[in-house]
């Protein structure tokens, strides 16, 4: 299997994730699209680790997964806190911090 196949799949997944982040208005879908982008990056890391036969890529994936877990925990807590005060989770209505 050439490396290019894995990189192409990774690029395509990353682009779909960007589309989800930019297009959708519900922050939960935005979170899911972010997870997709994390996964695309992890796929590229693991493919490069297998290609170059070094461990560093896989170690980086380990830390990416850790950071993703922390990010999701904080983000979902924020969404629930926003929903509790505004009774809506529409991204366009989250403009309270606008100067």
């Amino acid at each position: 299997m050439p490396l290019m196949y894995y990189l192409g799949l990774s690029a395509f997944m990353f682009t779909i994730g960007i589309l989800g982040v930019l297009l959708r208005r519900n922050p939960l879908v935005v979170f899911m699209a972010l997870e997709l982008m994390f996964n695309a990056a992890n796929l590229a890391f693991v493919a490069f680790a297998a290609f170059h036969k070094v461990l560093d890529g896989e170690i980086f994936v380990f830390f990416v997964i850790t950071t993703a877990a922390a990010e999701v925990a904080i983000g979902l807590a924020l969404i629930i806190a926003i929903f509790r005060t505004k009774h809506s989770v529409d991204i366009d209505q989250m403009s309270e911090l606008k100067g």
Partner: peptide, 22 residues
């Protein structure tokens, strides 16, 4: 976690299908 957040914010999920204006 995501599924729980969806269920906790269920009242808003019907409006979630709309796309961004840009």
């Amino acid at each position: 976690l995501i599924v729980f957040a969806i269920m906790l914010t269920q009242r808003s999920t019907e409006a979630g299908s709309r796309l961004n204006s840009l």
